[in-house]
Computed example of a mutant assay.
Amino acid sequence: MIKTLLGLCLALSAHLSFAAVDLNKATAADLDSIKGIGPSTSSRILSERKSAPFKDWQDFIQRVPGIGDKRAAQLSTHGLTVNGTGYKAPAAPAAKPAR
């Protein structure tokens, strides 16, 4: 019985440690808790968010300097979301047919 309760507690704590942080609702402390976001990045995010909430990941990437597709993907894997959605890489352009 004790082992079962201990296992349940460990599973619950592991789940909570990976809780998503929504970009449009997060405080500076919430943003700093995401691996890859430090105080300077969180201040840039909060500054941009004052003008308008982020619509989606592409809006976030365009408005915040230093954030590109690669970094957005990393932040998403560490729990950052935009309007509850994780990052999805844009589709690669179709290859041109050989002549």
Score class of each variant (00 low, 15 high):
Ile67Ser: 02
Ala52Thr: 00
Asp30Phe: 05
Ser17Arg: 11
Trp57Ser: 08
Ala19Thr: 07
Gly86Lys: 15
Gly86Trp: 04
Arg49Phe: 00
Thr4Gln: 14
Ile61Ser: 00
Leu31Val: 04
Phe18Ser: 07
Ala94Lys: 09
Thr27Glu: 00
Ile37Val: 07
Lys88Ala: 12
Ala14Asp: 01
Ala26Pro: 00
Ala89Glu: 06
Ala94Ser: 06
Ala72Cys: 14
Ala72Leu: 12
Ala95Arg: 03
Trp57Cys: 07
Ile61Arg: 02
Ala73Arg: 08
Phe60Pro: 03
Gly38Arg: 13
Leu80Lys: 05
Pro97Leu: 03
Ile34Asn: 06
Gly38Ala: 13
Gln62Trp: 07
Ala19His: 05
Ala98Asn: 09
Gln58Ala: 14
Ala29Gln: 08
Ile45Thr: 15
Asp59Lys: 00
Ala28Met: 09
His15Glu: 10
Gln62Ser: 15
Ser43Pro: 00
Ala11Asn: 00
Gly38Cys: 13
Ser47Lys: 12
Leu80Cys: 07
Gly66Arg: 08
Pro53Trp: 00
Ile67Arg: 04
Gly79Leu: 06
Tyr87Lys: 05
Ser17Phe: 12
Leu23Tyr: 05
Ser43Asp: 11
Val21Trp: 12
Lys50Thr: 00
Leu31Ser: 02
Leu46Asn: 03
Lys35Asp: 12
Leu75Val: 10
Cys9Asp: 06
Ala98Glu: 10
Ile61Lys: 02
Val21Phe: 11
Gly66Trp: 08
Ile61Thr: 03
Ala94Gln: 06
Arg63Ser: 04
Ala95Thr: 03
Leu6Asn: 08
Pro97Thr: 03
Gly36Thr: 10
Lys88Gln: 15
Arg71Cys: 13
Ile2Gln: 12
Ala19Gly: 03
Arg49Pro: 02
Ala73Ser: 13
Ala28Leu: 10
Leu8Cys: 03
Asp59Cys: 01
Leu10Thr: 12
Ile67Ala: 02
Leu12Ser: 01
Ala28Val: 09
Leu46His: 02
Cys9Gly: 14
Thr41Phe: 15
Ile61Trp: 04
Trp57Glu: 10
Gly36Arg: 10
His15Gly: 13
Ala95Val: 03
